[in-house]
């Protein structure tokens, strides 16, 4: 089985997010960057498939210089190969640009499956996996919570629907995107971390894949970030004082008429 996993480096979910001075990007100073948590499920699933069926696992990322750290982490978890499509115009590229570049990179390799996280934490567009499937003309099941190979070229992929699950049979090669719960990602081991140093990361430019600078970043995007805003500050809490009886009456009044919760 040839397995490709596309990953994205994102700010740690625990990081305090500040908006950059341009008003439309995140200020990354002092922010820990990690492999997007949903991508970790995809990496883990690929490793499990490989452990069961043999084959090879390759991670691909489209991103700036620093994204190589995220690739390293996947190599430390046990992934065999890594490809870094290096590009500084990554943050300003929309989902379709990202998907086009990833699809072009995937096409340079043999593959039976392409795995993604269901969305990149932070932007949360959840569009790239479906777009890549479309660009490569592959069947897809997204937001997968259970995956099982049933033959050489067929698999069952399950996702949650309102109040139940939908089980899909899918022909390979195919694209799936992973939802939390698909598996429990392993930690990289010390040995894995040391071994990852010896695995080379193959670097590519967008030119290598037949793209020009006009086709990426703001210039190449159909959806452009105009503004990023923090969530509104939470209003101050109210403390109700007085006798329990009146206080409760006042609370109910506020819940009903001000918070409109009742």
């Amino acid at each position: 089985m040839e397995l490709i996993i596309c990953i994205k480096q994102v700010p740690d979910t625990a990081a305090k997010i500040k908006i950059g001075s341009n008003g439309k990007s995140i200020d990354l100073t002092d922010v820990d960057l990690v492999v997007s948590p949903f991508d970790e499920y995809a990496v883990e699933e690929a490793l499990r498939i490989k452990e069961a069926k043999g084959g090879k696992t390759t991670v691909i990322t489209f991103g700036p210089e620093r994204a190589s750290q995220a690739l390293r982490q996947c190599l430390a978890m046990g992934i065999d190969d890594a490809i870094h499509v290096k590009c500084d115009e990554f943050e300003t590229s929309d989902s379709l640009v990202t998907a086009s570049i990833l699809a072009a990179a995937i096409k340079t390799l043999p593959f039976d499956m392409v795995l993604f996280g269901k969305q990149g934490v932070g932007r949360d567009n959840a569009q790239v996996p479906a777009m890549v499937a479309e660009l490569l003309n592959l069947p897809q099941v997204v937001v997968v919570t259970k995956f099982e190979l049933i033959s050489e070229n067929k698999a069952l992929a399950q996702y949650e629907v309102e109040g139940g699950v939908a089980v899909n049979e899918i022909m390979l090669p195919a694209v799936i995107s992973a939802e939390k719960g698909l598996n429990e990602p392993r930690y990289p081991t010390l040995k894995g971390i040391m071994a990852s140093k010896k695995k080379p990361i193959k670097e590519m430019t967008i030119n290598d894949l037949g793209f020009t600078l006009e086709q990426v970043g703001e210039a190449g995007s159909k959806v452009v970030f105009r503004k990023l805003m923090p969530p509104p500050a939470r209003p101050e809490g109210k403390v109700i004082t007085g006798e329990p009886k009146e206080a409760v009456a006042q609370l109910i009044d506020l819940l009903r008429n001000e918070a409109k919760l009742l």
């Binding site: 820990d32 990289p188 081991t189 971390i193 140093k197």
Partner: peptide, 15 residues
């Protein structure tokens, strides 16, 4: 080094 940072991160997560 990158490995040292990676090792620290792994242990922090596990802990």
């Amino acid at each position: 080094t990158e490995d040292q940072l990676c090792i620290r991160q792994m242990v922090r997560d596990v802990m």
